[in-house]
Amino acid sequence: MFPSLRVRGFNYLQAVADANNLSMDRIKVIGRKSSSLTMNDLNHEKVNLIVGEPFYLGSEGMLPWQNLRFWNERTLLDPLLSEGAFIMPCKGILRFCAMSLPDLWKSRCGLKDVEGFDHSVVNDTLGACGDLPGEQQGPCLPYYVWQCGYTKKLSEVYSLIDFNFSEPIHSCFGETKIEFAHDGTCHGFAIWIDWVLDKENSIVISTGPESRYWKQGVQLLSRPVQVNRGNSVMHVDHVF
Rank of each mutant, 00 (worst) to 15 (best):
M1I: 09
F2S: 06
L5K: 08
R6E: 15
V7G: 09
R8T: 12
Y12Q: 11
Q14I: 00
A15T: 07
M24C: 08
M24T: 15
D25N: 15
K28D: 12
V29N: 09
L37N: 04
D41R: 10
L42G: 10
G58I: 10
G58S: 05
S59P: 04
S59N: 11
L63P: 00
F70D: 03
N72F: 10
N72P: 00
L77D: 07
G84I: 11
A85E: 10
M88Q: 14
C90D: 04
K91N: 06
K91D: 02
R95W: 01
F96T: 03
P102S: 10
S107I: 02
S107K: 12
R108W: 05
L111E: 11
G116E: 12
F117V: 14
D118L: 10
S120F: 05
L126M: 12
C129E: 00
Q137Y: 06
Y144E: 02
Y144W: 02
V145T: 08
E156G: 11
H170C: 15
H170A: 14
F173H: 13
G174W: 02
E179L: 11
A181L: 12
A181S: 15
H182D: 09
D183A: 11
T185Q: 09
F189V: 02
W192E: 00
D194W: 04
W195A: 01
K199F: 10
E200T: 14
S202M: 08
P209Q: 03
Y213T: 02
Q216G: 06
G217Y: 02
Q219H: 08
V225C: 06
V225L: 15
N231M: 03
M234H: 10
H235V: 05
V236C: 04
F240L: 14
